[in-house]
């Protein structure tokens, strides 16, 4: 869906993006992570046809962003980190306006606008002035706006910034729903735990260079060389810990309430052996599985603990 090859963007002598390469397959949620000034927004703006690259190619669904920006705009929905709204426009009029900017016929865009307002839970606000909405609502409206032309790729730059916890949870739900609808999503955020929960791919950019990119679990394993396993036990936790300690390839067992988290250095397909060892000793295992990738851990490992994202 998105292919970036050798992308360079310079501002005078300053290199904002330095020979960046990236490939995102359709249907994935790609988390774009990096410290302040790493080149995230610059890259996103180039993808959104809003910035001229110095060199390199960016293709969205096979279409070059510089050669055919209009075709790219049909395919992407863009939500910037900071955005404004028009005074004196109502919510429906706002969506209708952007719908007409994409050349969607009146009836169709009215229908789509209502569906999108349902999706982002703003249907009750359809006749309210945009200016009167809370920040979280404006963010959701902006997300709806970016979907008005049914794009294949969604490019979201810090969509959760300034949102309260509830709004963030709602946004996560919406993004999951969009993924189920088959959309490819590129999302940059500084809230790593949130990205961990919704992204299946991640790319870490630092000083304009892509340090690492790919499947989150793969990256986690590549960095630490271990699989993180989370086990929920009902009963004797100490006994379970002792059994696990005896197992080869197991290290770093951490107790968290009635849960255990451990690092497993073996092959993923051999994990059943751990479960068998516990069950053979009549330990009541409630749940057993790989822990979700911890983006904070990846980020800190990759950037060697540089200033955390703002």
């Amino acid at each position: 869906m998105l292919v970036i090859k050798d992308l360079v963007k310079k501002y005078g002598k300053f290199v904002a993006v330095d020979h960046l390469n990236l490939e995102v397959e359709p249907g994935h949620i790609f988390g774009f992570v990096g410290p302040n000034g790493a080149g995230k927004t610059t890259t996103i703006k180039i993808i959104a046809t809003l910035l001229q690259p110095t060199s390199g190619t960016v293709k969205v669904d096979g279409v070059n962003v510089v050669e055919e920006p209009l075709k790219v705009r049909e395919r992407i929905g863009y939500m910037p980190d900071f955005f404004g709204v028009y005074d004196n426009l109502k919510v429906m009029e706002y969506l209708d306006f952007y719908g007409s900017c994409y050349g969607i016929p009146y009836r169709e865009r009215q229908k789509t606008a209502l569906e999108l307002l349902e999706l982002v839970d703003l249907i009750r606000k359809k006749d309210s002035y945009v200016d009167s909405l809370s920040r979280g609502m404006k963010q959701r409206l902006c997300l709806a706006r970016s979907l008005i032309h049914n794009p294949k790729l969604l490019v979201l730059d810090e969509p959760a910034s300034g949102m309260d916890p509830r709004a963030r949870i709602e946004l996560k739900e919406i993004l999951r729903e969009l993924k189920n609808m088959g959309k490819t999503i590129i999302i940059s955020s500084h809230i790593l735990t949130e990205l961990s929960q919704i992204c299946d791919m991640v790319g870490i950019i630092e000083k304009g260079k892509m340090v690492i990119a790919g499947d989150m679990d793969d990256i986690m394993k590549r960095i630490t060389g271990k699989t993180i396993v989370r086990i929920k036990i009902s009963g004797d936790l100490e006994k379970a810990v002792n059994i696990l300690k005896e197992q080869p390839l197991v290290s770093g067992i951490i107790k968290e309430g009635d849960e255990l988290e451990l690092s497993y250095e073996g092959e993923e397909r051999e994990l059943w052996k751990l479960l068998k060892a516990l069950v053979d000793e009549e330990i009541s295992v409630v749940s057993f599985g790989k822990a979700e990738g911890n983006l904070e851990k990846i980020f800190m490992e990759v950037t060697q603990g540089e200033e955390l994202l703002s």
């Binding site: 703006k45 959104a48 046809t49 809003l50 209009l70 705009r73 049909e74 992407i76 863009y78 910037p80 900071f82 955005f83 404004g84 709204v85 028009y86 952007y98 900017c101 994409y102 050349g103 902006c142 706006r145 032309h149």
Partner: peptide, 15 residues
Amino acid sequence: REKQTLDLLLCTKIS
């Protein structure tokens, strides 16, 4: 530009 709506307009199909 000041209202930060120009980018939203420029990334639509309108020339």
